Simulated assay, not measured.
Amino acid sequence: MKKYFLSAIVLAWGQIIFGQANDFRNPSIDVQHYDFKIKLSDADDHIEGEAVIQVKFLKNSTSLAFDLTQKNSSGKGMVVSSVKEKDQSLNFSQEQNILKITLSNNANVGDIREFEIVYAGVPSDGMIISRNKFGKRTFFADNWPNRAHNWIPCNDHPSDKASVEFEVTAPAHYQVVGNGILIEETTIDEKSKFTHWKEDVVIPTKVMAIGVAEFAIHYSGNVGNVPVYSWVFPENKKEGFYDYDQAPDIMPFYISKFGPYPYLKLAN
């Protein structure tokens, strides 16, 4: 009896997990690339976003849809102000946490097209804006398993992998870490800084992430051609750097068991 009860729990849990993921699947498109321009502030939890999304159409289509949580009764969620394709404004609607876009001309199977979405709001989830144990303000993406759509428009399903860029404008006292390699870090003025990360390896939205905080950063060494870094809070950098400095010794074991590390850096 216990065995059957345990099996039922496992089955139910699996249905919950996979059912949630499948709810967001969009079989009409295959996203090729995301470029997210995000503006953060210390004044409040409001974010401003611009997403440039390149998609390949898998079906003949008169419209397309992305997952994006709309503004709810508590005031949290994203409000889209414009959608464009090649500078041409497109009609759109937000319903049931879906951004539906009407195409100006029909898409054929195999077409690759690019759309620009401007939006803003207070994230209800996915982008966690809070304070760490030292009382310092932080911004961390936590998209697992299908929560990215709470702060970025996307096809929020693990089956759809794409390359991604994050271009973040944030208060100057923060450091920004993200997927891929650092393309640019520029001080705009005494109050703000621009940081651009780019990941060319295709990944699902659940692991597309940025972290924005006051960090201490340490280079731990290379494993082959892969540099290994530690990003920790300055208040406990001694302990953090020591713990994460073990990574270059550990990585070769996993590489020998599972294959080459596919990314250009490891940032713990």
Rank of each mutant, 00 (worst) to 15 (best):
V228I: 15
K71C: 03
I181M: 11
G180M: 08
Y254G: 09
A247C: 08
V168Q: 02
V109R: 09
G14C: 06
I183P: 00
G14H: 02
S61L: 15
P123F: 11
L99Q: 04
S81L: 01
V177I: 15
R113C: 02
V79K: 15
A120E: 15
Q20K: 03
I250R: 10
I255F: 05
N108M: 09
N106A: 13
S82M: 04
F166Y: 15
K86S: 15
S93V: 09
S230T: 14
E116M: 09
Y4W: 03
S61H: 07
N60R: 12
Q20V: 06
Y4F: 01
K100V: 08
M1I: 08
S124P: 00
D30L: 13
T187A: 14
K191N: 14
A107W: 09
H196V: 08
D35P: 00
F115V: 00
T102K: 13
I152E: 13
V122K: 13
I98C: 01
Q54G: 05
R113K: 14
F166I: 06
K86L: 12
K237G: 02
A120K: 11
F215L: 12
Q88C: 03
M208Y: 01
C154K: 02
T102D: 13
I47T: 10
G178C: 02
H173G: 01
S28N: 15
V212C: 10
M78I: 14
L266M: 12
I101G: 01
V207W: 05
D243K: 12
G121N: 06
S28V: 08
A170E: 00
N155I: 10
V10M: 07
D156W: 05
Y219S: 08
H196G: 02
P171C: 05
E167G: 03
G19T: 00
D67M: 10
G135N: 06
E48H: 07
K238C: 01
H218D: 12
S230I: 03
E50S: 07
Y263R: 07
F5R: 04
